[in-house]
């Protein structure tokens, strides 16, 4: 039996504040990963896998590394301080799902760097459009996740946007694939481009999955 009533509670608010900041910082990393991804694709489409593109890839790796370490610290603290016992499992899964989004960003840039797909100019606009839509979709789920911590009622609004952009991304991806397979490119080239369209679209699907679980968590979080 332990009787230390006060020492823990006095420091509790300081630790709580620090942990709140770490969670915010972690979600910032997910947003940043999207911005870097978006810029890297723009650069690749114009100039190919140049040094500038590789610099973006390196930046993405750093963001991913920092995000991982933040997530581990947060998870350890939540357990060590036995915080939010009723919602701890949900929060841990949310953080891991968000971390997965960063991994997908990073993984896609890696694949591009290794396989260097050749994107004919007539498809640049489609790829750019798809990229911006999935990044906006992920950004919306980041906002939904922030709301889960601070303003539960707003989760629903952000989730609605996630659903919208996910559908948009599907439409853009389908249209782009039709255009590619309707072109005179060799089949292996068409398949290569299709592979990347699917990989990029996967981001929107993953974001939608997170939004779905967030909606459940939000109901559980109700007072």
């Amino acid at each position: 039996m332990q009787f230390s009533l006060f020492p823990k509670n006095i420091t509790l608010f300081n630790k709580t504040r620090a942990l709140e900041q770490q969670i915010d910082e972690f979600l910032d990393k997910v947003s940043q990963a999207g911005l870097v991804f978006s810029r890297a694709i723009e650069v690749y489409l114009v100039d190919g896998a140049t040094d500038e593109f590789e610099a973006f890839l390196e930046q993405e790796e750093k963001i991913e590394g920092k995000g991982d370490s933040l997530r581990r610290t947060i998870e350890l603290e939540l357990y060590a301080q036995t915080l939010i016992p009723d919602l701890r499992g949900d929060v841990l899964r949310l953080l891991e799902d968000m971390d997965h989004l960063v991994n997908v960003y990073e993984g896609n840039l890696f694949r591009i760097s290794i396989q260097q797909p050749e994107v004919p100019e007539q498809f640049h606009a489609g790829f750019l459009d798809l990229t911006r839509t999935v990044v906006t979709c992920v950004e919306s789920v980041v906002l939904a996740a922030r709301s889960f911590f601070r303003d539960m009622n707003a989760v629903r609004d952000h989730n609605a946007k996630v659903m919208f952009y996910e559908t948009e991304a599907d439409k853009i991806g389908t249209k782009l694939q039709r255009a590619i397979f309707g072109s005179s490119l060799p089949l292996e080239h068409k398949n290569h481009l299709r592979y990347f369209i699917e990989r990029i679209d996967e981001l929107a699907n993953a974001a939608e999955d997170v939004a779905d679980t967030l909606a459940i968590y939000a109901i559980k979080r109700r007072v």
Partner: peptide, 25 residues
Amino acid sequence: IFKLVEWVLGKARLHLLRLDAYTRL
């Protein structure tokens, strides 16, 4: 009391962790 708490928490928009700490106290 429940309605009042629900209303106050809705207005206050406390961070999940802050709410947790306050709830403990």
